[in-house]
Amino acid sequence: MLKNTSFRLSRILPSLNIYATSIYLLLSLLLLLTFPVVSQNRTTVSIEGEQFLINGQPTYLGQMWEGNKIEGLLFNSRMVQGVFDDLNPETAVRWKYPDTGEWNPDRNTDEFVAAMEEWLAHGLLAFTVNLQGGSPMGYGNKNWYNSAYEEDGSLRPAYFARLSKILDKADELGMVPIVGLFYFGQDQNLKDDVAVKDATENVVDWLHQKGYRHVLIEVANECDNKSYDRDIIKANRIHELIELVKSKEKGGFRYLVSTSYNGNSIPLPNVVQSADFILIHGNGVHEPARIAEMVTQTKQVAVYSPMPIVFNEDDHFDFEEDTNNLVTAVQSYASWGFFDYRLDGEGFEDGYQSIPVDWGINSPRKKAFFAKLKEITGY
């Protein structure tokens, strides 16, 4: 009897094992569908006082340059076209690559990603990429259509697939993307203020879902620019979007957030009070001494408390000179950001904002900036 029972069990057990394995695999699949696996995040950014920290350690740890403290700064470049596309077929033909005669948004992003290691090797820890881009001709807005949002504020998957490539590579390298949400000349493609708020929430929810911890948010580029159509993005109300981002906490974590101002402008109290860091621009600042004055005036805003001050757009160069906007920002303990666009008559290799972009370090201006950056940061 016992022998017969053992025989029957020996035949049943393999079937039970197969059944159990099938159930396990099915449950695992259901869990994956319910809770999507996020990338294995490696990098976090945080702020202590006036310093930026990456993975809990001040940036450029211990670095001094010509008697100036570099530790805690966040040197950056305006690379806002990393996910650019033009949804207007009448204007999209303007952006064709010289070698193929065609525009290709995926090529643009892939070449961006391929260049990031070289930027980092010269000491660049951060860059600004904007979900509504920037003028693809340097300055000025016409009828091109570049927006990561549908009219109602829902997200366009193709844009966010491209953004994932950039953020994943930055996470791998230990870099800090400054993700801009809105740009004048494109905000009118959102139907109203409600759509703007929905777009803001949708982006932050997407970032949380992906598990990113190395991203800073710039809710709008130059909120005091009079070209904005949607009221909630304008300077007197932009703090509402900053507070909205801050309110979207998940697992005890929230994103650090600010907004930027026009060149040569001092931030207003509503932003200074709400923001986690200050973003200002050096466009229009032809005398480097004014850069230092802007930092001083920002700290004199009544509600200011110690926080990092970051220039994340400045189209002044002269990197070979002893005094320039970059050097003066360093002397004022403010981070500085390179803004480079293609001037009339220049070639494909010139400019990081003009479409199509050569994301390498190939023009004289790019080489001069990155050489100076490498010197200052000690990379």
Rank of each mutant, 00 (worst) to 15 (best):
195 A>C: 07
290 R>C: 10
149 Y>N: 01
173 L>K: 07
71 E>V: 01
13 L>E: 00
349 E>K: 11
225 N>Q: 10
66 E>N: 14
149 Y>Q: 03
321 E>Y: 10
18 I>Q: 11
228 Y>D: 05
209 Q>Y: 09
54 I>G: 01
346 E>G: 04
249 E>C: 03
25 L>M: 07
58 P>C: 04
193 D>F: 04
227 S>C: 05
24 Y>A: 07
189 N>A: 13
222 E>K: 01
141 N>Y: 09
20 A>I: 14
268 L>S: 15
332 S>M: 02
59 T>N: 00
238 I>C: 04
165 K>I: 02
268 L>W: 08
191 K>T: 13
235 A>P: 05
153 G>D: 01
264 N>L: 12
336 W>K: 10
13 L>F: 15
101 G>Q: 09
107 R>H: 02
256 L>M: 14
364 P>Y: 00
341 Y>F: 07
5 T>S: 11
303 V>Y: 05
273 Q>N: 12
232 I>S: 01
29 L>N: 03
228 Y>T: 05
171 D>A: 05
108 N>P: 06
209 Q>F: 06
242 I>G: 07
169 K>W: 09
283 N>P: 05
372 K>Y: 03
201 E>G: 02
61 L>R: 13
352 Y>T: 15
370 F>I: 00
145 Y>T: 09
236 N>D: 13
215 V>I: 15
283 N>M: 08
316 H>M: 07
114 A>Y: 00
171 D>V: 06
202 N>S: 09
96 K>C: 06
375 E>K: 09
309 I>E: 07
232 I>K: 01
270 N>F: 14
333 Y>R: 15
186 Q>M: 13
332 S>P: 03
251 G>S: 03
216 L>G: 00
317 F>S: 06
276 D>L: 13
301 V>D: 08
358 D>F: 03
239 H>T: 01
156 R>Y: 00
20 A>T: 12
192 D>E: 06
328 T>F: 10
87 L>N: 10
203 V>E: 04
231 D>Y: 07
5 T>W: 12
10 S>H: 08
70 I>M: 02
278 I>V: 12
67 G>K: 12
152 D>Q: 02
279 L>P: 03
39 S>R: 15
306 P>S: 14
226 K>E: 13
372 K>P: 00
122 H>C: 00
369 F>R: 01
240 E>F: 02
49 G>T: 09
36 P>G: 00
350 D>Q: 10
30 L>W: 11
95 W>L: 04
260 S>R: 00
328 T>I: 07
106 D>Q: 05
20 A>E: 04
98 P>E: 04
203 V>S: 06
269 P>K: 04
9 L>D: 01
201 E>D: 06
191 K>D: 11
133 G>P: 05
41 N>Y: 13
